[in-house]
Every structure is written in structure tokens, then in C-alpha cells.
Write a protein that binds this DNA or RNA. Structure first.
Length: 443
DNA sequence: GTAGGGTTAG
């Protein structure tokens, strides 16, 4: 035993505590610990790592301006720790995530002016921020520009998978492939995330054969596809109505010991519904349960949608009723599906019954619910009930969208209710602008 | 003890 001195907390102990609090979303508590450290008459002072942890905690909890103020007003003057590369990287990431790219650029410039070196994470953070903002071209340009002037600007696996993923998701398959091979030709081999990005992006771009050959390369390189990768490929085959191959992948998963999850089954159920193969649906439901995979609210939603789509609304209603025994509460997606199809079939009364049932069961109606009902009421020309719903929308602060506006604009003026439409719209505008303000202030 | 890349289903 070394005595008590060896178990006294040091700055790293505090660092672990502060980090734990931040990661648990308790930034306020982290700040209090930091204040406690600063006040104590111990020889422990927060260091740059502790401070960066708090800065990142503030950033990741959406308190970006506070993080910036903390860096500018406290780090050097109060704590004697000037911001370093990590500090700036946290801030840059946060400003990118709230869409303030110009502030992110400003911070990069500030690093230059203050002699804080940029590193590979700075590069990847900006590249990622631009890609997320849909500015893939600007991201590529930024990379091309910095790769020669920044000491760490050459780009690593993160840079390339970010860019390749963004290119694939914007359907720029040619450029994505070029970049992928550029990295490979330098003697680098893809890591698991790069493979995943390629598989997911190629599938998204509709290039299933390429996605599959990428999956083969991944296996040859000694990686295993995980459940998510299989799910993505299965969804891709389902979208292309190639159910046989989708089911083969399920078989392959089982053979190589990757467990299908509820999402795997839901994807295949949805595909089988869309193919109209309800015998396969029943068989797969059985397998799913045998496999220890409990149906979720999405499973029920898939089945309800599938039966509605082929006009078997009674069967869809039977599934809604069967949810009670399963202990899974129907949500508004399920009710909306049924209400929409009932209205389209002209069965507005039953749709309204379901709408009332939602209220009894405290399932919140949303704009999709109201739109479906309003369309049904328009088709049956039942304005009184529609006015009632419009009032409810206002009371429940459910804001009309372009569909609501569309439906009412082609209906109410025809039946001489233009004024009521105007009032409804004005209320919408008024409250909608208030809502935007309150969203901003609470963010 | 701190920062950056993949998330599939109604």
C-alpha cells in the first residue's frame, strides 16, 4: 500500500469525470465541476484537455454560442490555457452542424492568424461539414486546395470515405469511383467503414451489382459484413423487386452467423407485401418469431400498409386490432395509413371513427392525419366536418403544410368559403412565424 | 481524460 497520497484525484481523474458528465448530456454539472476545480485550493487546475472537453460538451448540446464565448473569454484569461487545435476543431464542427459554414471558415482563418496548427481532423471536419450541407463540390475543392498547403492535408481514410459517401449519395458515381481508386492506387486498402460507405452509397445510387462486388471484395479482404450492411443490400434488392436475391442474403446471413434483426425482417416483409406475396409474408412472420425477433410497431405498420395497398382494408384493420394482444401500441403512422386508405375508398365515416379512437388512446394526430381526412371530406363534399377539423388543427397547434393548402384552396373557394380559408391561412402564418422564433430561442 | 467517416425498415 502506498498511502493516501496515491489515491488522490488528479487532473486526469477530473478529466474523466468531466468527460463522463458531458457524454451523458450533463454539461451543466460538468461546468460546476470545472468551477469547483478552479476554486479549490488544491494544486489541481483544469488543463487544456479538461477545458476542451467542456467546449465540446457545450457544442454537442447545441450551445454553440456559449462554447465560443467560453473559448474567447475564459480559456486564456481565466484558466491560462489558450485554445489549441482540438478546441478549434470542436468549434468548427459545431458551426458546420448548425449550418454556419462561413463562421467555420472564419475559425480556420483565426487558427492561421494565431499560429494554431490545423491537422487532419480540421480538414475532415470542414470536408464533412460541407458534404453534410450538400456542398460536395466545395468540399472537394477545399480538399484539393489544402492537400498541398497544410502539413496534414493529404487526407486519410476518413477524408476519403466522407467524400466518396457524399458523392455517391448525390449520384455522382463516376467521381466517387475515381476518388476511391485514387486512394487505392496510393497503396492504401479500404477499411471496414470505407467498404460500408461504398456498399451503402452504391446501393442508394441504384448500382446493386457494383455494391455486391464491393461486398465480395470486403469479404476477400477479411472483413465481415455486419447486420446493417446486409440490411442495406436486402433493402436494395427489395426496391428493385428482386425478392429472390433478398431472401438469399437472409440465408447467407444465417450461414455466416450474422443475426438478422427486426429491421432485416421488416425490410423483407415490406418487399414481400409490395410484391403481393402474402404467403411469403405469413411464412416470414413465423420465422421471425421462431428466431426470437419480436415484431415492432414498424412490423405492424408494414403489414397494415401492405394490406391497405392491395385493397384488403379489413385485413389491415384486423392487424390493428391484433396489436392489443401483442402489447404494442399503434402510433400515428399506422392510424394515418388506415385513415388515408379509408378516405380514398370513400369510407370517411370509418376514418373519422379511427380518428376519434386516436384521441381516446392519446395517439397524437399530425398534419398527415388532417390532410388525409380533409381530402376525404372534400371528395364527399362535407364542409362542416372539415371546418371542425380546421379548428382542431389550430387548437392543437398542428400547422398546415402545402398539401393542406392545396386541398383547401381547390375546395373552399368553390363552395363560397374563401373568407374562412383566408382566416385559417392567416392564423397559420401568424403561429408558424412564432414557432420559428421559439425554435430558434430554445435551440 | 478531448475533436473527424458508415445507420438500414412502415
Amino acid at each position: 500500500m502506498q498511502g493516501c497520497a496515491s489515491v488522490r484525484p488528479d487532473v486526469v481523474t477530473y478529466g474523466i469525470l468531466v468527460n463522463g458528465l458531458c457524454k451523458a448530456g450533463r454539461v451543466g454539472d460538468a461546468l460546476r465541476v470545472l468551477d469547483g476545480m478552479s476554486r479549490q485550493d488544491l494544486d489541481i487546475r483544469p488543463d487544456v484537455v479538461t477545458l476542451n472537453t467542456v467546449v465540446d460538451g457545450l457544442c454537442k448540446s447545441g450551445r454553440v454560442q456559449e462554447a465560443l464565448a467560453f473559448v474567447e473569454q475564459r480559456m486564456s484569461s481565466v484558466h491560462g490555457c489558450p485554445p489549441n487545435t482540438v478546441t478549434y476543431n470542436c468549434l468548427i464542427d459545431a458551426f458546420c452542424r448548425v449550418g454556419n459554414i462561413s463562421m467555420a471558415y472564419e475559425l480556420v482563418e483565426k487558427m492561421e492568424n494565431e499560429g494554431v496548427p490545423q491537422n487532419i481532423v480540421t480538414l475532415n471536419t470542414i470536408v464533412g461539414g460541407l458534404c453534410r450541407a450538400g456542398r460536395t463540390g466545395a468540399a472537394l475543392e477545399f480538399f484539393r486546395e489544402k492537400r498541398t498547403v497544410w502539413p496534414e492535408g493529404k487526407g486519410n481514410a476518413v477524408t476519403y470515405s466522407t467524400l466518396v459517401g457524399a458523392l455517391l449519395h448525390t449520384n455522382n458515381v463516376g467521381m466517387a469511383m475515381e476518388l476511391f481508386h485514387e486512394k487505392m492506387s496510393e497503396g492504401h486498402s479500404p477499411d471496414a467503414i470505407m467498404y460500408f460507405t461504398m456498399i451503402s452509397g452504391l446501393t442508394q445510387a441504384g448500382r446493386l451489382e457494383d455494391a455486391c462486388s464491393m461486398a465480395s471484395s470486403m469479404k476477400e479482404a477479411g472483413f465481415k459484413l455486419d447486420t446493417k450492411a446486409y440490411n442495406i443490400l436486402i433493402a436494395g434488392f427489395c426496391r428493385k423487386k428482386r425478392l429472390h436475391e433478398a431472401y438469399e442474403l437472409l440465408q447467407e446471413m444465417k450461414e455466416v452467423g450474422i443475426r438478422p434483426d427486426v429491421c432485416t425482417y421488416n425490410t423483407l416483409l415490406s418487399g414481400s407485401c409490395k410484391a403481393g406475396d402474402f404467403a411469403a409474408v405469413d411464412e416470414l412472420l413465423g420465422k421471425m418469431i421462431d428466431d426470437g425477433c419480436q415484431p415492432s410497431v414498424i412490423t405492424f405498420g408494414t403489414l397494415v400498409h401492405g394490406y391497405c395497398k392491395v385493397g384488403k382494408i379489413d385485413e389491415a384493420l384486423r392487424i390493428l386490432r391484433s396489436m392489443d394482444e401483442s402489447g404494442i401500441h399503434p402510433n400515428n403512422v399506422i392510424y394515418n395509413t388506415l385513415i388515408d386508405f379509408l378516405c380514398k375508398r370513400g369510407d370517411v365515416d370509418l376514418a373519422i371513427e379511427l380518428f376519434d379512437e386516436m384521441k381516446e388512446k392519446s395517439v397524437p394526430a399530425n398534419v398527415t392525419t388532417f390532410n388525409a381526412l380533409l381530402k376525404g371530406l372534400r371528395d364527399k363534399n362535407m364542409p362542416e366536418k372539415a371546418f371542425e377539423l380546421m379548428d382542431q388543427m389550430r387548437e392543437e397547434r398542428c400547422f398546415p403544410d402545402y398539401v393542406t393548402v392545396d386541398v383547401l384552396m381547390e375546395w373552399l373557394p368553390v363552395i363560397g368559403e374563401t373568407d374562412r380559408l383566408k382566416r385559417f391561412m392567416q392564423q397559420g402564418e401568424h403561429t408558424a412565424s412564432k414557432r420559428i422564433v421559439s425554435d430558434r430561442t430554445s435551440a
